[in-house]
């Protein structure tokens, strides 16, 4: 019985971990504004976790720079399954304007499969919320499939 309750709680409250891999700070600021009272993503049960080991959803912003590449791989490996990788903005999806730079080793799907991508540069907070809600649905499916 408690198991069911815990499962339901896990489904209703997904924890985010925000990983900045060399973003220009545009997307990061928009993600922070999502948890301000005006947009308040905590209505949907999101909480920003301080550690990747507590997270269900990884939000990656920025093209992967060569400095952050190893850290990205290490961080992603620490996230417990099932996890959902969300690419925030155009940068992780395709490196955006930084494509071809000597210090950029993106895009993100070289290192991890992207489950949801939110396009925009930066995306509006509403779009980020819609993307996160979609990520929660995928997380639910993944969790059911694992059982």
């Amino acid at each position: 019985m408690f198991e069911k309750l815990i499962q339901k709680g896990l489904e209703k409250s997904a924890w985010l971990y925000h990983l900045n891999t060399g973003s220009c700070n545009g997307c990061d600021i928009e993600l922070v504004s999502v948890i301000t009272p005006r947009y308040d993503a905590e209505r949907f049960g999101f909480k920003i976790a301080g550690s990747p080991r507590h997270a269900d959803i990884i939000v990656v912003s920025g093209p992967i720079t060569s400095q952050s590449r190893d850290r990205l791989i290490r961080t992603l490996a620490q996230v417990p399954e099932p996890k959902v990788v969300v690419s925030l903005g155009s940068c992780p999806r395709s490196c955006n304007v930084f494509n071809g730079s000597y210090c950029v080793e993106g895009p993100l799907d070289k290192y991890a499969p992207i489950d949801v991508s939110i396009a925009g540069c930066p995306p509006k907070p509403e779009a980020i919320m819609a993307g996160l809600v979609r990520a929660v649905e995928i997380l639910k499916e993944k969790r059911r499939a694992m059982k």
Binding site: V116, I118, A119, G120, P123, A127, A130, R134
Partner: peptide, 9 residues
């Protein structure tokens, strides 16, 4: 356009 909800899988 003004459409901003661009969510894709």
């Amino acid at each position: 356009t003004k459409e901003y909800l661009m969510i894709a899988e």
